Simulated scan of single mutants.
Amino acid sequence: MPDLRLVIFDVDGTLVDSQTDILGAMAMTYAAEGMPTPDRAAVLSIVGLSLPVAMETLTPGLDPARRDRMVETYKDSYVALREKAKVNETSPLYPGAREALARLHADPWTLLGVATGKSRRGLDKLIEGHGLEGLFVTSQVSDHHPSKPHPAMVLECLSETGIAPDRAVMVGDTTYDMDMARAAGIRRIGVGWGYHPANALDADVLIDDFAELEGAVDRLIGQPEEKSA
């Protein structure tokens, strides 16, 4: 019997271009505190980190109480924006993402997972909005784990599915994703369309189109029909 394999996806900057919602929620958060919003490049550079770490990175020296308040304001603002707009307009799937997910999901030996800096509430809203329910057998969020690049989210994906590290791969757009995967002992596929420069990603394979994903997965962790060694 072939060995199962696991493909773990980052979300923001990898599956969806959510910068409109992220930038909007961050602007609302800083405005609520009477503070100037960091510029676009700075905000996008922290996408993938858990919100407390992101806030501290954007504004070093924040009082912990203020930081926690800003985290909650951001979560509420993000959800409010999601409820007002169509998800395919402000957080659209990248071209080819839905088709690539469907092809991988159709293979009975390939499991799909998520490891994201989003909260559970934010991830659930996004999955519901795009009709992706049922695709991911494991989904890890920032509510229950240390921030990327700590490997906890990937390790929990492996634990929940029973997949060995050599049969798993992380797909992401940031150095946080790649460092997390490396720390967890799994292979790394970087995407060239996300929020960190592609040349900064220390990936095993770098792809520029979702059409290249399945081939990259096959090369790194083996095709589904292969027997275990």
Rank of each mutant, 00 (worst) to 15 (best):
R5T: 14
L6W: 01
V7I: 09
I8Q: 14
T14G: 12
T14I: 03
V16G: 10
I22F: 00
M26D: 03
G34N: 11
P36F: 01
D39G: 10
R40C: 14
V43K: 00
S45Q: 11
T57Y: 08
T57R: 14
G61I: 06
D63R: 09
A65K: 13
V71S: 08
Y74C: 01
L81Y: 02
K84G: 02
A85C: 08
N88K: 04
T90A: 01
T90Q: 10
P95V: 00
L104T: 06
A106M: 03
D107N: 14
G113F: 12
G113R: 06
V114L: 09
E128S: 12
E133I: 12
G134V: 07
L135H: 04
F136D: 01
V141K: 08
H145E: 05
S147T: 09
C157K: 02
G162R: 06
I163Q: 05
D166V: 12
R167M: 06
Y176H: 14
D179G: 05
R182L: 05
G185T: 10
I186C: 03
G190F: 02
P197F: 00
P197M: 02
A198E: 10
N199L: 01
A203Y: 10
V205D: 05
L206H: 06
L206Y: 02
D208Q: 09
A211K: 13
A216S: 09
R219N: 10
G222V: 15
Q223G: 14
Q223N: 12
E226K: 10
